[in-house]
């Protein structure tokens, strides 16, 4: 099985994530879509590592996972906090910071 298919999968997952971020209103879903994009990237990195026969991509993927874990903590805390004050998790409702 050619590693290229992993790349196609990665691209499809990334696109789904992107569309989710751009189109969905629920903050939790948007957040999950971001995770999806990160993991699609991880998949691409690992695939490139396999193709090139080096470990660089895998090391990179670990870094991305660490960042994603930290980001989840901070992001979920923010979403919970926003939900507590506004009784809503819609990203469109949190639009006070504007012109």
């Amino acid at each position: 099985m050619s590693p290229t298919f992993y790349l196609y999968l990665s691209a499809i997952l990334f696109t789904i994530g992107t569309l989710g971020v751009l189109l969905r209103r629920n903050a939790i879903v948007v957040f999950m879509c971001i995770e999806l994009m990160l993991n699609a990237t991880n998949l691409a990195l690992v695939t490139f590592s396999r193709i090139n026969g080096t470990l660089d991509g895998q090391v990179m993927a670990f870094f991305v996972m660490v960042v994603a874990a930290a980001e989840v903590v901070v992001g979920l805390a923010i979403i919970v906090s926003v939900f507590r004050t506004r009784r809503s998790a819609s990203v469109d409702d949190a639009n006070l910071l504007k012109y």
Binding site: V21, L22, V91, D92, A94, N95, L96, K98
Partner: peptide
């Protein structure tokens, strides 16, 4: 130009994209 700053996070995301 200020009107571009709508406060909608998704529009910012679109411009980043």
């Amino acid at each position: 130009f200020r009107r571009v700053q709508t406060g909608f996070v998704r529009s910012y995301a679109l411009s980043m994209f």
